[in-house]
Amino acid sequence: MSTSPLATLAGLPPGLVWPADRLARPAEAGVPTGFPALDAQLPGGGWPRGALIELLIDAFGIGELALLLPALRAAAPERWIAWIAPPHLPYAPALAAAGVRLDRLLLLTPSDPATTLWTIRQAVASGGCSVVVAWLPNAQSAALRRLQLAAEAAATSLFVFRPGSAARQASPAILRLRLQPAPDALALEIVKRRGPPLAWPLRLTLPERPAAFPGRADRRCSGLR
């Protein structure tokens, strides 16, 4: 792998600085997303490890959780999967049918936004979670920065769902994807990655959409539908 002249001049190790016309090459390979077309567009060939990953979405139930199923299934069995402040209650039989270990799943429902941020940070910093998935309708840049630093320090993958309008705001997240529904698929716009912008959205077919998820009328989470 060639070394960036800027990195050489600055005395930095390879991988911390990358040319703007190519993807960064992190020291550690990413976690495979389960979607080869997406892996090909991400530095490290998958979800970045120990990082804040933002998933920007305008409406729930478009298949956003199906996007995370491969990562949830691959979570280390001795560690937890924390599920924090979901907008609807997850339907356990559908998650189990999709291969998610319910005995390692922590469902946390804080009472207010400040407690939600504190809970996310504690779950990430504890080192006891392999993956943390959280929903943050509102978050300031400083709070997101603290979450990013906690994810780096604990080597924990942190997926945060935020409104689609947040794409216009700056964020310390390593990776930001905007998710939109498409016929029998999910369209992904790469808002931010360590590399050049992607000129077109990716279209991912989601093969796993368990019909066991009921509608949102009874407040159960329908993101796998």
Results as ranks from 00 to 15, higher is better:
Leu68Cys: 11
Leu102Phe: 06
Ala74Met: 10
Leu106Asp: 12
Ile62Val: 13
Gly45Asp: 11
Leu106Gln: 14
Arg79Glu: 11
Gly61Lys: 00
Leu65Ala: 08
Leu68His: 08
Phe35Gln: 03
Ala40Val: 08
Asp39His: 01
Arg49Asn: 10
His88Trp: 14
Ala59Ser: 11
Pro43Ile: 00
Arg101Phe: 06
Leu105Gln: 10
Asp103Arg: 03
Phe35Gly: 09
Leu72Lys: 08
Arg73Lys: 15
Pro90Val: 04
Leu102Ile: 14
Gly50His: 03
Arg101His: 11
Leu52Cys: 13
Ala85Leu: 08
Ala82Asp: 14
Ala71Lys: 03
Phe60Asp: 12
Leu106Met: 12
Pro36Gly: 01
Ala98Asp: 09
Ala96Ile: 08
Leu55Arg: 12
Ala75Ser: 14
Gln41Cys: 13
Ile57Cys: 13
Trp80Leu: 12
Leu69Ala: 00
Leu68Phe: 09
Arg49Tyr: 01
Leu56Asp: 06
Gly61His: 01
Arg79Tyr: 12
Gly99Glu: 15
Pro36Asp: 11
Leu67Val: 05
Pro77Gly: 05
Leu102Glu: 12
Ala37Asp: 15
Glu64Cys: 15
Leu38Met: 07
Glu54Thr: 09
Val100Phe: 05
Phe60Gln: 10
Ile62Pro: 03
Pro86Gln: 05
Asp58Gly: 11
Ala59Asp: 15
Ala97Ser: 14
Gln41Met: 13
Leu72Ser: 04
Ala97Gly: 14
Ala51Phe: 08
Leu72His: 08
Arg101Asp: 14
Leu38Ala: 04
Ile57His: 06
Leu95Ala: 03
Ala66Ile: 02
Gly34Trp: 04
Phe60Tyr: 14
Pro77Leu: 12
Leu68Asn: 13
Leu69Phe: 09
Ala98Glu: 03
Val100Tyr: 05
Pro86Trp: 02
Gly46Arg: 12
His88Asn: 09
Leu67Arg: 06
Trp47Gln: 02
Ala40Cys: 10
Ile57Tyr: 11
Asp58Val: 02
Leu89Lys: 05
Tyr91Arg: 01
Arg73Gly: 06
Gln41Arg: 13
Gly63Arg: 07
Trp83Ser: 07
Leu69Arg: 10
Gly34Tyr: 13
Tyr91His: 14
His88Ala: 11
Ala85Cys: 08
Pro43Arg: 00
Pro77Glu: 10
Arg73Trp: 15
Leu67Glu: 10
Ala74Phe: 12
Gly50Pro: 07
Asp103Ala: 09
